[in-house]
Every structure is written in C-alpha cells, then in structure tokens.
Design a protein around this nucleic acid. Structure first.
Lengths: 346, 346
DNA sequence: ACGGACCGTGGGAGCGCTCCGACGCAGGCC
DNA sequence: GGCCTGCGTCGGAGCGCTCCCACGGTCCGT
C-alpha cells in the first residue's frame, strides 16, 4: 500500500517478499512463535496478547507463507497432481473432474493440474515427480507404464492412479472401460432386431483410446449373440464432407443400425443421412453416447448411451485411503456405468 | 528396480527418496559437482569422465531433483499459475487455453492450473501466492480486485493478468469484451431489417459474466441505430421445458430477430420454436455465437458470431515481456474478435 | 627452477520454514 | 530460602538445492 518513494519507478512496491522472520521482528517475538501462532499449533500454548501481536504483524506486512519452504521442511506435500489429458474434455468428464477436485480439497489436498505437453511415460513421470506430489491421478493414456509408476513412487508419491480407459502396471486404476459403452449400444440395437451394425470410428487422433474400446465392446456383444450379427467399421472425421461421403455410400453398406461413438457424431451423421434421404430409424437405427442435451433436440430424438461416472466424493475417499496406506496392492476399480436410453432414433 | 527384501511387504521399494547427496556419494564426488553436471552449468568445467559417473549414478538411483528445494534456493520460480474458471469451458476456450499453455512452456515456464474452489478475491490470491508464481493468469471473474493483485505482487509475482470479460485494478488485462459479440449480432440483425430484437439471457449462474455484456452490446448497437429498434430480454434455462414455455408465448413478444447467447441455446430455442410452428428465419431471424459445428447441422443452418481469440504464442510473448519488465504500467489488451457468419437462420 | 595462470573439484552458507529441546520465570510446597 | 512444576517463549538445526569462493594440482613461460 505504501509507495516507497526512493525506489525507481521500474520497481514498484513489491520489493522484498516478507518472511516469517520479518513478521517475528515486527511483532517482537521469535520465528518459532510466529510459526506456532499462524499454524494454530495446539501442542504449544501461546498467550493471547502474543497471538494478536503476531497476527497483526502478519497482516500488516501482507505475509503469505512460502509453500515450497514449508514442504521442504515437512518432507512431504499435500499436492495431488492431475496431469491434464491432451483431449479437450467433454461436459461429462469435466464435471466429474471438478467434483473430484472439490472433494479432494475437502480432504485438505491441494489439487494441481499440470500439462504434460507431449511428454510421455517415464519422461512425464520425471517431470511430475519434481513436484513431489503425494498422489498422482494420471490419464491412463499418458502411457505411464511400470517404469513411470516406479519413478513416481520412488519420488515419494504414496498413491498413483490411472484414470480412463487404460491402466498402468503397479498403479491403482480408476478404469473407465469404454467397452461397456459399446456393449450397451450393441445390446440395445440387437434387442431392437438389428443385425448389421455400423460403428463410427472417429478419425481424430486423440479419441482413439476411447473409440477403439467402444468398438471392441460392440464386437464382443455381437460375438456373444451369435453368427448372424455383423459389424462394419465406419471411419469418419468430424466434418460435413466426411459425413456426406459416408452417407453417399450408405446403402451399399447394408447396415441396419449404427453406433456413432457419441452424440455429436450422431448429429453429424444423422444430418448427412437425412440429407441423403435415408430414414432414421426405419432404414437405419442410430444410437449415440453421452446423453447430451443436443440428442433430445434432434428429430428423431436420439437414443443414446448414458455414461455414469462415480461421485468425486467416493474417489477422493479412495485416494485418501491409499495415501494413508501406501502398501495396498494396486486395485482396479471399474468406475464406468452405462445404460441405454431409448428415444426415437432406434 | 532392486527389491529390498528385508522390508515388510507394507513398504515397497520406495523407501527413502534419493537426493543429490546420494548421487554424489555413489559417484564419489561432491554435491556441488552433481549440481553442475546435472544442470549443464556452462560457467564451470567438469571433466567428461566425472560427468559420466555422475549421470550414471543419478540414473541408477532414479534421482529426480526436488523442485521445491530448487526454487527455495533460487528465490523464484518459473511457475505460471492459471486458476481454472468455475464455468466448464467450451471447446473454443479450452483450445485457446491449451495453446497458451503450450506456448508458455516453450518459454520454459511451468504452467500450473489450480482450482480456486470457492475462494474469491484476496482469499484466493493468498492461496495462489503461497506457490510464489512468477506470473498469474487469473479469470477476470475470480474477483481478484486491487487488493488481490497487490497480495500477488508482494509475494513476488512479476506479472498478473486477468483473462476474460472482467478485469482487476493494477493487473494487466487480456480483455475479452463480450459486448463485441452482442454488437456484432445486433448489427447483423439490423442489416437484415430486423428491429425488435430478443436477447436470450441464460439463467445458469456461471454464465452471467458472459451473458450480461453480450446483452449490453446488443443494447449499445440498437441505441446507436436509433429510436425504432427495441430489445427484449428473454431469460431461458438450458432445458426443454424452459424453451417450450418461452416458445409458447413467443408471438406475444413481437420479436422479429433473436440473439441466443450461443449456438447451443440457439439449437434449444430453434427446436422449441419449430415445434411451436414458428418459422425461422421468416417469422423470427436467429443468430447464435461460437460457430460450433452443430450450427451448421441445423436446418435452417444457423447464423452465428464467430469469436476469435488471439494466438497463444502472442500471449505467451506478452506474458514473458511483462515478467522481464515488471515495472510496466498495466495494459488492457483487447483480445476478442467477433465476426458475424451469415447462414440460413437470419 | 620458480612464479603465475588456469583447470577441476570441494566446502559451506543460506533460501524459508517447522519443531525438538532448552531456558527463564512465577508460584507453591517443604 | 531452596526446590520443583509448569507455562510461555526462544535457539537452532536441518529439509535439498545452488553457487560463491577457496584450494590443490598441472603446465607453461621466463
């Protein structure tokens, strides 16, 4: 607040960052006392007048503790590192993410997101390890691997989780088995008498870890059903030309039902099919995934696979449990639920 | 790699985290030498055999430097803190975000996202300051305020930016003036002969910082045009019932053009209007914003306001410049571009 | 043969913080 | 009066790291 007049204009008020020693000096106590007061240490009794003096001095100086120094001394942190996935997250996943973040902060963890930025596996693990996080929740697709997990554990991480469709040896897994989505869709289409199922495979790079297992789920469900069901992979980029091209050769494909990977691709394909004069669901039934609002706004209303992710609260509890007992054998938690929602497109 | 057999199964290999002293001991050199080698210090010459011994020792122990210790010693960090906004970001913004993150990492900054989690203003600033970031790019909506900016600067932050439709005193601003979006939409509708403009105001809480200025932009454009243009605010929640209710009383509103806040609300409203038998664009012209793919898939194809955000590269350069010269007067950079895209709905 | 330049390496301080042990002092007991 | 108890506070070490400075050795020039 007070401008220091004899500094050059170059260097404004922020001159030297106040430390606990500065607070101690101003309050006329020792650094130890400052620490006790500001941390409300219960084991040590400090008189009320002293407490007040310290707090006032801290406020006057605008003192903010130095997290790095604190954790250096403590020998550990409360940082939970969540490397951000490369793929932009949809509303479903980002809500899950926020909830988890909130729940973890209830457990007094500090959630830090950290771009991996092209690093993969051990490289990425090393970069993350520099922060000495107590737990890491990494996207399964980051290719952590047993080596990466080991790097993190050796750097002091008590809990290493993968999150998503893939997992890593030695780490706990919050497995989001995307095959369930495919199975669910396939079962739905089979129940409605469809036998020749098209499966949209997005050509976008980052979606592969999701798209492949969803297709695999379809394949499994069809295999279970018997010989007469077939599956056709339909590569499709998220643009109108690609969709139009696919629609143009649609009738040659002999497909009576299609799973479109998600609702957005469903909308894209539905439009292209309708422009081509192909009736949905009469000629081809269609089911998407994610249960987005836009599906309800399509005509016909889009059938979809609703995906349920676990509550952030539950997961935060799990993370906390593993942090407290790092010796636990790595567990695989299947956290993805899928249910078909029947509307008009199937 | 080597299992330590006489530890209990409770405590796996990760036993004590190796430090540079351990590396030094194993390589038979001093800690200083380890530091020189691993940091490739150019001012000090270390013989090649020594370098090799150090590197091998580091690899064998799985040594990872301790970021906190390093920055404690250095007295500063290369951390750029980007508190995550509460509102889930759309694809436009999250792409911008990723690009910025990438570009900053090119400048050797470490980008850390950090949930604010309900804290606002000074509270939040204090929490952020604990990390001693060299720069902070905060959402304008975080309510930083002059006090918050001061807290950050006093904690050593060289550059404080706000990002979004709002700004904070004392901080640089990457201002995304959402009024432009409204102005652009209004101008487009006026040009097409519309005079009674409805403006959708989403009822969702977090959208207000965007919705209000967009509406304000409409108002300004209409005012500029003259007396005969009117504006009607249309509160709308993002669900079908709300849209149906609005559509039911549509004809009583006397609106010949509508700006729907964004493309998703446009889709919602267009469906509701069409279900009500109201012709778009004949009875009511419609324009959205964000230029999402889904707009192109609607029938009629949706006119929209394309929003352009600046390149992450440019912004990273700006951040870097301010970090190098923290004395700079705070500047306001208008970084939002808006152009109307005419399709069929207007 | 001797002084100085220079090269490779080590010693050690100190960044800001916490926490263990110690220390002084007041009050009560023998 | 001396001793003990306990309360409030302080001194100081050390977390892992970097970097200034010192130091011993080799080699060259005179």
């Amino acid at each position: 607040m007070v401008q220091i007049p004899n500094k050059t204009a170059q260097q404004p008020a922020q001159y030297s960052v106040p430390t606990s020693a500065d607070v101690a000096r101003l309050a006329g106590v020792s650094r130890a006392t400052v620490s006790y007061v500001l941390n409300n240490t219960s084991a040590v009794r400090i008189s009320e007048p002293t407490r007040r003096r310290v707090r006032e001095a801290a406020k006057e100086l605008g003192y903010v503790p130095h997290a790095a120094a604190r954790s250096l001394r403590a020998g550990h942190t409360r940082v939970v590192l969540m490397p951000t996935p490369q793929i932009p997250a949809g509303p479903l996943f980002s809500e899950f993410f926020n909830e988890l973040q909130w729940a973890l902060s209830r457990f007094d963890y500090t959630v830090v997101q950290y771009g991996s930025l092209g690093l993969t596996g051990e490289e990425a693990a090393r970069a993350w390890a520099e922060l000495r996080p107590v737990a890491v929740l990494a996207p399964g697709a980051s290719g952590l691997g047993a080596r990466g997990v080991s790097v993190l554990k050796r750097s002091g991480a008590k809990a290493v989780f993968t999150l998503g469709p893939q997992q890593a040896e030695g780490a706990h897994a919050l497995l989001m088995d995307q095959r369930l989505v495919g199975q669910c869709a396939a079962t739905h289409l089979l129940e409605r008498g469809k036998r020749h199922i098209g499966v949209v495979i997005p050509e976008e790079q980052g979606l592969e870890p999701f798209a492949r297992p969803r297709a695999e789920g379809i394949r499994q469900a069809l295999a279970q059903h018997g010989q007469d069901a077939t599956m056709t992979e339909l590569p499709l980029a998220y643009d109108e030309e690609s969709a139009a091209r696919l629609a143009a050769r649609w009738r040659t494909l002999g497909v009576d039902g299609v799973f479109t990977y998600n609702d957005e691709f469903a909308m894209l394909l539905m439009r292209a099919l309708q422009d081509e004069g192909i009736a949905v669901p009469e000629e081809t039934a269609m089911i998407g995934a994610d249960d987005l609002m836009l599906g309800r706004l399509l005509r016909p209303r889009l059938s979809t696979v609703r995906i349920e992710l676990p509550s952030g609260q539950k997961l935060a509890e799990l993370v906390d449990r593993v942090v407290r007992d790092p010796g636990m054998e790595p567990e695989v938690h299947d956290v993805l639920g899928a249910t078909a929602v029947h509307r008009e497109s199937s």
